[in-house]
Every structure is written in C-alpha cells, then in structure tokens.
Computed example of a mutant assay.
Amino acid sequence: MRLKSIAVIAYGLLSVGFSTASYANLKDDIIQRGTLKCGVSSDKMGFSYINDQGKWAGMDVDYCRAVAAAVLGDPKKVEYITTTSKNRFTSLASGEIDILSRSTTWTVSRDAKLGADFTTIWFYDGQGFMTRKSLGIKSATELNGATFCLSPGTTSEHNLADYFGSRGLTYRSVVFEKTEELYAAYQKGRCDALTNDVTGLAARRTLFKDPNQHVILPEVISKEPLGPYVKQGDNEWRDVVTMVGNALIEAEELGVTQQNAAKLAKSSPKPKIKRLLGTEGSLGTDLGLKPDWALKAIEATGNYGEVFARNVGVNSPLKFERGANALYTNGGLMYSPPFR
C-alpha cells in the first residue's frame, strides 16, 4: 500500500509538471527576450509584404506591431519570419514563431488537430477565382476541365474540391509550395486559373505585368474568417493576442484614433474610453500587462478602421470596400466584446 501511495503521488507530481510545461507563460518569455517573433507571408500585398521602402507592411504586419506595442511598449520590437502555407503551423508548434499572422482561415480542424488556437477575426474574406480575360470565361462553372495552380495544405485546395465535386465538374491541379512560384507559373500559362481568397487574388493581380488582362469571376464559394493563431496551451498569451485585436476594433467604435488616443487618455470623461485606455479599471492587470497596453497598441497602428484604410482600403492601391469588415454599427460584422 505504501509503494502504491508513493506511485500515485509521483504520478500526480509528474502530471503537474506536464501541465505546467504545457501552459508555459510565453508572454513573460517574450518580455524577457525583448522581441516578438511573428510568422507572416512575404508577398501578400496589403496584408504582409515588404513595401517599396524595404519595410514590412500590411494588416497582418500591423497586428504584430500592435501586439509588440502592447506587450513590449515598442511596435518596432518584432522579428518577422517568413512562413509558407505548408510550414506555418509547424513553425508555430515548434516555437519558431510566437504568433502566426498570415491571413490564415479559422477552421474547426485547425483548432482541434494542429495544436493551435485562433484568436481574433481580423478580416472577413471568401474564396474566388481568377483567370485570363482572353479565355472569355464569365463564370466558375465554365472552368470545367481547367487546370489550377494550387498551394498545398490550404483551405482553398479543399474548397475547390468541394465546389467542383458537388457540381460534377472536373479539374486538374499543379501544386507549388511557394506562393511566388505559383503565380509565376500562372502568368507563364502553366494553368488556366487560380483560386484563393478574393482579396489575395486582387492584391496579387496588381503586381502582374498587365493586371487588366486578368479577371476575378463573380462567384464567392466559401467563408474565410482570417486572423492570427497562437500555440495551443498558453491561455494567458491567447487572451493577450486576442484582446489586442479587439482593442483596435473597440477603438474605432469609440472614435479613438492614433492621433487623439493620448489626449483622450488624459481628458476623456467617458468610462468606456477610460477603461480601454487604462485610466480606469484593471483590464491591463487582468491581462498581465501595463495599464496603458491598449493605448500603446492604438498609438502604434491606429484603430481598426485606420489599419484597414491604410493597407487595403481607401488610402491604399487596393481600394477594397469595407463590406463585412465594417463595424456592426455600419452594417458589417466587426464587433468587440465589452471592455469592462
């Protein structure tokens, strides 16, 4: 009996050890390290790419900058690590990156099977099709028998199979791991069409030699809620990354901007703004951050509307409409939980 009791105690101690390891505090490690490791794409204009000034830019990049500002007090303290559609979740699981901010779709299987947790919906998108205008195709159903250039391990690959299979249509595929190789092959005529998030297709088309010779078809065949992932098992880190995005959404709703945030933090009489900016309440402490964490994030990137306009909206070459990405008060789906 004594040996059995010792064995039970030992097992319990081991279990506690495993539990502690699986819920390691990444936030504190990042603070000690002084740098946030952010997994991104390198070539998706408007989301994560290197701009003409040789600097990282885009909505997904801004998310990491906001997290760095909230956690480290400085949006420049980010190390950007290029990932592919194939290795992105492996990079997250291995600890190579702290956050995957790469226009990645939230799905049940990814949350359940890949050791990753989704955080905030950062962009609502949907999958579409692009083909050469010279083919004269007006609808996706006319792509029966077409050859598609595809990336492995993406929701686009599975959605295409579902869409064509349910309609009795056939297609051939040519697979490329690297995005730049995929689009280069399409432009050389190795495939008839591309399928991806509509925003991704539109962004890539702007880089083609003659964008007007390529058409995006009218069908949108899927729901693609995009946003950052973190490694599963660290609830505090997931809360931090989730609430940084929500803080920028809440800031837009409350009229807090990059320009007026500091002033409002000192003078606003509104309780909602005070709680958001850390001059009232304990939200920062609750998250294990400084009281002004959200203020720092907003000062780094602006609110969600500013991030959208600068990278993909009216102030960008892409000129995307807000659509589903407008605030819920303006007919969209963007909605933050209460900051209280």
Score class of each variant (00 low, 15 high):
Met1Pro: 07
Met1Phe: 06
Leu3Ala: 13
Lys4Ala: 13
Ser5Trp: 12
Val8Ile: 15
Val8Phe: 12
Leu13Phe: 12
Ser15Gly: 14
Val16Met: 15
Ser22Arg: 10
Tyr23Phe: 04
Ala24Asn: 04
Asp28Pro: 02
Asp28Tyr: 04
Asp29Ala: 14
Ile31Arg: 15
Arg33Gln: 14
Arg33Pro: 09
Thr35His: 05
Cys38Arg: 00
Val40His: 02
Val40Pro: 00
Ser41Val: 01
Asp43Arg: 07
Asp43Cys: 06
Lys44Phe: 08
Lys55Asn: 14
Ala57Cys: 02
Ala57Met: 07
Cys64Lys: 08
Ala66Phe: 07
Val67Thr: 12
Val67Ala: 09
Val67Lys: 09
Ala68Thr: 04
Ala68Trp: 07
Ala69Arg: 00
Gly73Tyr: 05
Gly73Pro: 09
Val78Gly: 00
Ile81Thr: 12
Thr84Trp: 01
Ser85Trp: 08
Arg88Met: 01
Thr90Val: 10
Leu92Pro: 06
Leu92Val: 08
Leu92Met: 05
Ser94Lys: 05
Gly95Tyr: 03
Glu96Gly: 06
Ile97Tyr: 00
Asp98Phe: 03
Arg102Asp: 09
Trp106Gln: 14
Thr107His: 06
Arg110Trp: 10
Ala112Ile: 02
Lys113Gly: 02
Thr119Trp: 01
Ile121Pro: 07
Trp122Thr: 12
Phe123Leu: 11
Asp125Pro: 00
Gly128Leu: 05
Phe129Glu: 12
Arg132Ala: 13
Lys133Asp: 10
Leu135Tyr: 14
Ile137Tyr: 11
Ile137Ser: 08
Thr141Lys: 15
Ala146Gln: 06
Ala146Glu: 10
Phe148Leu: 06
Pro152Gln: 09
Pro152Tyr: 11
Pro152Gly: 13
Gly153Ser: 13
Glu157Gly: 02
Glu157Trp: 05
Asp162Gly: 05
Phe164Val: 06
Phe164Asp: 08
Arg167Leu: 14
Ser173Asp: 10
Val175Leu: 06
Glu180Phe: 11
Tyr186Lys: 08
Gln187Gly: 09
Gly189Thr: 08
Arg190Cys: 02
Arg190Asn: 11
Cys191Pro: 10
Asp192Arg: 07
Asp197His: 00
Thr199Lys: 08
His214Arg: 01
Leu226Ala: 09
Leu226Gln: 10
Gly227Met: 01
Tyr229Ile: 00
Asn235Pro: 01
Trp237Val: 02
Asn246Ser: 09
Leu248Thr: 14
Ile249Arg: 10
Ala251Val: 11
Leu254Trp: 07
Gly255Arg: 05
Gln258Gly: 06
Gln258Trp: 03
Gln259Ile: 11
Gln259His: 13
Gln259Gly: 01
Lys266Tyr: 02
Ser267Thr: 15
Ser268Asn: 03
Ser268Leu: 04
Pro269His: 04
Lys274Trp: 04
Gly278Gln: 03
Ser282Tyr: 04
Gly284Met: 13
Asp286Ser: 12
Asp286Trp: 03
Leu287Gln: 04
Leu287Glu: 05
Leu289His: 00
Pro291Asp: 12
Asp292Gly: 03
Leu295Arg: 12
Lys296Phe: 02
Lys296Asn: 14
Ile298Pro: 08
Ala300Tyr: 10
Thr301Ile: 04
Thr301Cys: 14
Tyr304Met: 11
Glu306Cys: 09
Val307Asp: 02
Val307His: 03
Arg310Phe: 03
Asn311Met: 06
Lys319Glu: 10
Phe320His: 09
Arg322Ser: 08
Asn325Val: 04
Asn325Pro: 07
Tyr328Ala: 13
Tyr335Ser: 14
